[in-house]
């Protein structure tokens, strides 16, 4: 190696190391097919269900 290694570490470089190690996932909306199927099924059942029985009004 050309010269002696030096170990002083800039805070910015240390932070960059942490960023590269634990980078977040790119933003985006990604749906789980099974969850979507469940939500659609639930919505369908709610739409097809008979109306809630209500007490008859007494005049």
């Amino acid at each position: 190696m050309a010269s002696q290694l030096t170990a002083p570490v800039g805070a910015a470089l240390a932070a960059e190391v942490e960023d590269l190690l634990g980078s977040a996932e790119p933003e985006g909306i990604y749906r789980d097919t099974r969850e979507c199927t469940g939500i659609l099924l639930l919505a369908g059942l709610l739409l097809l269900s008979p109306p809630t029985p209500r007490p008859k009004s007494v005049r």
Binding site: M1, S3, A7, P8, V9, L13, A14, V17, L21
Partner: peptide, 18 residues
């Protein structure tokens, strides 16, 4: 490894850590 490192500074050490 020391042969792969083109630099011998803090950045090279950081690359090893990454």
């Amino acid at each position: 490894l020391s042969g792969v490192l083109a630099q011998d500074d803090a950045v090279a050490l950081a690359a090893i850590r990454v």
